[in-house]
């Protein structure tokens, strides 16, 4: 009995320090959001005719990647509301993502001033939305432990792993999540050519656009349809060897899981290499757009006619 207690105490003692030493990157690489954009509750959403209003915007990058060269852009009904400083209407921004040193991600707050330029005749009040868009490029990265198993007929019952689907839950710290990977060992002669079916899904609250379309999504101008479509380019490698993925780019549809298959024609494994585990690295690049809306109400004071 004493021995058992001693062994248990030993185990508990050993577990403490091990837990503390777990790599923080595992927590950083989780979640299904990147940038979170919202209007601060202290923003003025009710303003009087001809007056200015201060609007505060909170931005938080809770994703695993830093945002660089993002664009934030305000859309407003300029016949009624105008930015006090026109240059503030559209600006670029950078925001640090989650990391070991900043596990909560970067936070930023900025102010935007709008002014009412008058109300339509005879109206006592008028509702007009203030829309904020944040557009940026983002990536989803994951290293998935997969089993390379040339023993497709299961001759060796003692093999270290089996080529079975790997599920990934909780996201990878980005709005596009890799949900599962299915390793497929395709026999080619005496060897196998591993292929990986990677399932991804857009789980964020924003909109996916192409990487090139990220900036354009927040700005006007004539654009090609392709750049604004929800396509993402994918990259994958296995043991440092790049894989070719099809289809690429991958097109997302709201609420649907999409699949692409990655392989390398040159990568073939035979019984000589045996069954082993390896890391499949997958990287998905895309543009992303977040939107926030602040409904604003402008009220005319009795007797007010115009703002001149």
């Amino acid at each position: 009995m004493k021995k058992v207690i001693f062994v248990l105490l030993l185990l508990v003692a050993c577990m403490g320090p091990v837990q503390k030493k777990l790599p923080q990157s595992a927590e950083v690489m989780t979640g299904t959001s990147a940038l979170e954009v919202s209007f601060n509750p202290n923003s003025m959403k009710d303003l009087l005719m001809c007056q200015e209003a201060n609007v505060l915007v909170d931005m938080k990058n809770v994703g695993a990647l830093d945002i660089e060269g993002g664009i934030r852009s305000f859309i407003l009904e300029e016949q009624t509301l105008k930015p006090v400083k026109m240059e503030e209407k559209q600006k670029s921004f950078d925001l640090e993502g989650k990391s070991q040193f900043n596990p909560r991600g970067g936070v930023a707050q900025f102010e935007f001033k709008v002014k009412n330029v008058g109300l339509p005749e005879q109206l006592e009040s008028y509702d007009s939305p203030l829309i904020l868009q944040a557009c940026y490029t983002y990536k989803t990265s994951a290293g998935v432990q997969v089993c390379i198993d040339p023993d497709t007929k299961n001759v060796n019952p003692q093999k270290p792993c089996r080529a079975e689907p790997v599920s990934l839950s909780g996201g990878q710290g980005a709005p596009v999540a890799i949900t599962r990977v299915e390793p497929l060992m395709v026999p080619e002669g005496n060897k196998i050519s591993p292929k990986f079916a990677v399932y991804v899904q857009h789980v964020g609250l924003g909109t996916v656009v192409t990487e090139e379309g990220a900036e354009l999504a927040c700005t006007g101008g004539e654009e090609s349809k392709a750049r604004l479509s929800s396509y993402a380019t994918v990259k994958a490698d296995l043991q440092g060897r790049p894989l070719s993925c099809t289809p690429n780019p991958v097109r997302f549809e709201a609420g649907k899981e999409v699949r692409f298959i990655c392989d390398n024609e040159d990568a073939k494994f035979g019984s000589a290499e045996g069954t082993f585990t390896s890391i499949l690295n997958v990287e998905i690049s895309y543009g992303y757009v977040n939107t926030a809306v602040l409904p604003m109400k402008i009220t005319r004071l009795p007797g007010q006619e115009s703002c001149k």
Partner: peptide
């Protein structure tokens, strides 16, 4: 007097959003 809000968008953008099964105005939170 009467007033009507109109939302203007480029056709390309509308199509791109519809391809994602998104309503173009939903994408802007309208």
């Amino acid at each position: 007097s009467s007033y009507l809000k109109g939302y203007f968008m480029e056709q390309d953008r509308i199509r791109a959003l519809r391809r994602q099964q998104l309503d173009p105005l939903d994408a802007f939170g309208i």
